[in-house]
């Protein structure tokens, strides 16, 4: 038998053989945890605007993001965030706390290779593509608006 054909058949067979896990619960967990993180964010915003009545929604949002980024970073350092992640999946990846986790986790992990070439150089191994792509898209959108 032709090798390509054999491999194709084998891949199809393996795909069919992979156990169908119960996906439904993980969707619920992701929904609930993601929703809760957003609610905590909203709570921090409301609290900030209560304490500083003159604060604009934009500034409150910015402060709120900084606060939850800090909390996620701390939980990552303590080794708690990855346990939430095992349970919640995208529920703790998609919020900005997941972005913070993806920067802090390589930093903590690669500290052992030194501050400069370990911690600092490896900090963006996971989150780097996010910033690169985000900036690239924002520049394209900026250019489009420039010529509109």
């Amino acid at each position: 038998m032709d090798i390509e054909e054999r491999n194709k058949k084998y891949n199809e067979y393996v795909q069919a053989k992979i156990p169908k896990t119960k996906n439904f619960p993980t969707l619920i967990y992701a929904f609930v945890v993601g929703g809760l993180i957003c609610c905590i964010g909203q709570g921090i915003m409301d609290l900030l605007m209560l304490i500083f009545p003159t604060m604009s929604v934009e500034s409150a949002t910015a402060w709120m993001l900084i606060v939850i980024i800090f909390v996620a970073s701390l939980l990552t350092g303590l080794g708690i965030y990855d346990r939430i992640g095992v349970f919640a999946g995208a529920g703790s990846i998609v919020p900005i706390t997941g972005f913070s986790n993806s920067i802090t986790s390589p930093a903590v992990e690669f500290k052992r290779e030194g501050i400069i070439f370990g911690l600092c150089a490896k900090m963006f191994t996971v989150a780097g593509p996010v910033i690169v792509n985000g900036v690239a898209v924002s520049i394209v959108i900026g250019l489009i608006y420039l010529f509109l």
Binding site: A62, L65, I66, I69, F70, S73, L74, T76, G77, L78, G79, I96, F99, S100, I103, T104, S105, A107, V108, E109, K111, R112, L119, C120, M123, A127, I131, G134
Partner: peptide, 21 residues
């Protein structure tokens, strides 16, 4: 977005100095 990125970077740096994996 500088606020968010700077916060993520600086907190990551601090946490990495404090904690081990």
């Amino acid at each position: 977005t500088s606020g968010g990125i700077a916060a993520a970077v600086v907190f990551a740096f601090i946490m990495a100095l404090i904690f081990n994996s």
